[in-house]
Design a protein around this nucleic acid. Structure first.
Lengths: 253, 253
DNA sequence: GATTCGGAACTGATATAGTAGAAACTGCAG
DNA sequence: CTGCAGTTTCTACTATATCAGTTCCGAATC
């Protein structure tokens, strides 16, 4: 976490590299990661690499089976539902604290940020949108003046960012000012209204995420327990494919 | 967590042993843990031990500095406050779900358990009280029917259990039926009332914990950053002492 | 053509050894 | 008795080697 960046150990470097690759989408859902190859690539022995991957596994980004491999975690439907229940609990708490502790300049800054996010939401390019959306939620958390809480929220966001990256185009029936309305409730309304707005915001996010991940749920059902190492087999089972391709694949099957 | 007990690896064994020792109070706040000695004692190389300690560090029970050592984490006041804010968020969520999903038999079971806990609260021996109190909160979480949420709650409880263990005698001005009232609100009342009851329950717990930990906050201030290995120096700085002894120590200073 | 089976290659888990660095100890000066 | 240097001893960290289990791929079989 924070000590990782402070202590320039090899394990910390490996951790950051892999984490960034997952978050930037260079490593897709279900892709296996070889400790040895990664170690060779980064120029270190695979023990620090192993430590980094273990850490990411504890955080829920990876899953591994002894002597089979380590891969980017493919979530189940229950995982996603549970994830959003926890996230709702934390962000509602943050929203309440926000109404008490956020300064006037912070409120202004967030209103501007929300407008930018909503403006970008309809554009086809998702990269900038993803970054700013993440920053918006993080800033809300930071305004709670509770580092432990914002750390916890940050951790849940890292997980859902992976899934979020799969959303390649804007959602069709989307409210055009989702985030502006959220921030409006947070900055203006009483604590109860802020909490309720955050709850609804999260409910929409959950529904959408589950919709996007549906093909992956089926994929996980099918290859439960096998860690495909070769690219050919992975392709054969739909790993690395876009959600739309997966959809037709499993509809035919 | 669960895979740990399922996979009987050496690392899992070390993890459970150290965790149990911390929770049972055999390892006190600020005590350093030697990877090598522990490895020798458990009859394994220190790599699995290292993995276990890393895991406990991620969970927040330990802290380590490169080339200095690993010790049981001494929290700051902000840590404790943040911890209870997160815990409140999660347990309030669990309470709401409890009112929706708990079965009749589960409600009955919890009422009985709460009565036992309150009965034990006034007794001088704390060991059984600690165990049952923990079980009560865990059962509430499990009735939410959301494994991800109960796992998250379980993790926060592991942390606060360490602090809880310092409370060697019953709190004086305590409501005699704290837990029975909580369960009453959970089983009978609407979701809002259940949530509010859980919030108040947590607020009391936080106040009490901060009160008990006050001497340790001062202790941490004093020896920030030094990992004392010899027992003599540790005693000199109050590590391993009971809260009351610490109190007089730092009042005199 | 589809299925099964066996060696080859690879994977994570563990053991052992060596290195760098921080804390503790010892002796000396004030 | 107290404060401070140099030395010693301990620690965590890294690297290499070996083991047991898994996946892969092609040849043999039905």
């Amino acid at each position: 976490m924070k000590d990782m960046s402070a202590t320039p150990s090899l394990a910390a470097e490996a951790y950051n590299v892999v984490r960034q690759r997952i978050l930037r989408g260079e490593l897709v859902l279900g892709q296996v990661i070889s400790r040895r190859k990664l170690a060779a690539e980064l120029g270190m022995s695979f023990l620090p690499v192993s430590e980094a991957l273990l850490r990411l596994e504890v955080e829920g980004l990876l899953e591994s089976r002894p002597r089979a491999g380590t891969r980017v975690r493919i979530p189940t439907r229950e995982d996603v539902r549970g994830h959003f229940i926890v996230r709702e609990a934390l962000e509602v708490q943050a929203a309440k604290l926000f109404t008490r502790f956020a300064t006037a300049s912070e409120r202004k800054e967030l209103r501007k940020l929300a407008a930018r996010v909503d403006g970008l939401a309809v554009k086809p390019d998702r990269t900038l949108y993803t970054v700013l959306h993440h920053r918006l939620h993080r800033r809300i958390a930071e305004c709670s003046r509770c580092p432990v809480l914002s750390d916890a929220i940050e951790k849940t966001h890292a997980l859902s960012s992976i899934w979020f990256g799969l959303l390649r185009r804007p959602a069709p029936g989307d409210a055009p000012h989702r985030h502006e309305e959220l921030i409006e409730a947070l900055t203006k309304g009483p604590a109860d209204a802020a909490a309720e707005a955050m709850r609804e915001h999260n409910a929409v996010a959950m529904e959408r995420t589950i919709e996007v991940l549906k093909p992956y749920f089926r994929m996980r059902q099918n290859n439960r327990g096998t860690f495909f190492r070769s690219e050919r087999k992975q392709k054969l089972h739909g790993i690395g494919a876009a959600p739309e391709e997966l959809e037709v694949k499993y509809q035919n099957a």
